[in-house]
Computed example of a mutant assay.
Amino acid sequence: MRALAVIVVVALLSTRSIAASGNGAIRCSVETNVDLASTPLTVYGIPGSRVILRSANRVDYHLLWAVKRGDETADEEIYAKGYKSTELAVSANYRLVIKSFSSFPDGLRARFRLYRLTNESSHFVYLSQWAVVRVGSRPQIRGNINNMTLNEGEVIPAICANYSGIPEIDIHVTRRKRGFSESESVNSSRYSYDHQTGCVTFGKASRYDSGEYVISASNCLGQDQLEFSVNVRSKPIVEGLGTQQLHAALHSNLIIPYIVSGFPAPTITWYHNGTTIHRSSRVFYNTTILMLKTLSKSDEGVYEMRAVNALGRVNRMISIVVTAAGKL
């Protein structure tokens, strides 16, 4: 049997008077310390889930729940702790349980008040605004986005799809750059989302826009994603590696970091004193590092890195001096 999802809203009791306030807060998942006395509340859940509206118990007061169904104007007042129906139940600890979203109209409203019996009369204190319970939905993105390849300066085509979800969804874009394993958020100034058209637009492409993209649509009930890649044609460039002389200790390991980028992906070749360097158990290089293990005097000299693709080429040169340990 499929387990029911449960949404719990805790209402703090207070004896101050109630004043209407704005559109109120939105809750979709387990929450605590939500003061319904000052803030109207909209609770969203998915079909088949339960909603539990709970208040703290006060010894000197009794709790009364009032419920409106749909657009009905009259309240159904629930006094008894053990009240049960096909749709609603009040448990022994004063929780109002809305049993399943499939068995009541969207827009059911509930609030609670306290009453105290005295010798003269019954004394009622209203303690909460209405909590409106609505049927929500997890975000969904429907659409097929093709991977794209374009030139620097061209406008990246709008990414249009059918985005849906209740309550309203938020859009977030992340990108994983070429050669990196971790994703990063795309600055919100680089894209915009139009709720009317369902399109995300980016503007003109630069070499730094290449990567694997994820558009995430989320609300408090869940998240959906759309993935695509952008390749921006560009000649190779090298960052972090300038003309320099490096000193390293004899028998030490030397790691030289840099970043080579471009599309199509550049072919990288390193040379030592004009001779091609071949990868081995002692020498390794890729688009981000050159690593030399257990340096010897024969490793001294001039190193040149060449990066080539169909759009151009670039080279960088450094020199390495191997010194005796302790004489750097």
Rank of each mutant, 00 (worst) to 15 (best):
K84W: 15
I46G: 13
R175S: 06
V135K: 13
S137D: 01
V322F: 06
G222I: 05
K81N: 14
R58Y: 13
M1Y: 04
S210Y: 15
V34M: 09
G312M: 10
E182L: 11
M148W: 07
H123A: 14
S21D: 06
E212K: 07
A158Q: 10
V232S: 13
Q129N: 14
G242Y: 12
V214A: 06
M291N: 00
I141K: 11
T323P: 02
P157K: 13
L221G: 04
S189F: 13
F263R: 08
S234T: 10
A80N: 03
W270A: 03
R175L: 05
R58A: 15
G45S: 03
A310I: 12
N93M: 02
K81R: 15
A307F: 01
Y208C: 00
S229K: 11
P257K: 15
M291P: 00
I256G: 02
I141H: 13
T39C: 05
A89Q: 12
I46D: 12
T267K: 13
R27Y: 09
Q196G: 09
S298F: 14
H195W: 03
V314A: 12
D170H: 08
S49L: 01
G136P: 01
S100C: 05
G274P: 01
S128W: 04
H247A: 00
I320K: 02
R95H: 07
E239F: 15
L241R: 07
T294Y: 11
S261A: 11
I169G: 05
G203L: 04
P167L: 06
L226K: 04
L295T: 04
Y83P: 06
L290I: 08
A19M: 07
E77N: 14
T197P: 05
M1C: 08
A92Q: 11
L13V: 10
T197A: 08
S100H: 02
F112T: 12
I320G: 00
Q245K: 09
R2G: 07
S49W: 03
G107V: 14
C199M: 01
I7E: 15
E77M: 09
W130D: 05
E168T: 08
S128K: 04
I289T: 09
H251T: 08
K235Y: 03
Y115R: 05
A265Q: 10
S218W: 01
Y61A: 15
A110H: 11
T15H: 07
E77I: 05
S122N: 10
S121E: 10
R175H: 00
K297Q: 15
E77K: 11
L221R: 04
L88D: 03
D170E: 15
T294C: 13
T269D: 04
I46T: 13
F101E: 00
V173E: 04
Y126M: 07
G45P: 00
Y213R: 04
H62Q: 10
E120M: 03
D60F: 12
Y213N: 02
R95P: 09
I268W: 02
D71F: 07
Y208L: 08
V322Q: 06
F101W: 03
L13Y: 09
N93V: 02
T323F: 08
L4K: 12
N151H: 04
N231A: 12
G326Q: 02
L88Q: 04
Q129L: 09
D35K: 03
H123N: 15
F263D: 11
R316E: 14
I166A: 10
Y79P: 01
E212T: 09
R142Q: 07
Y83F: 15
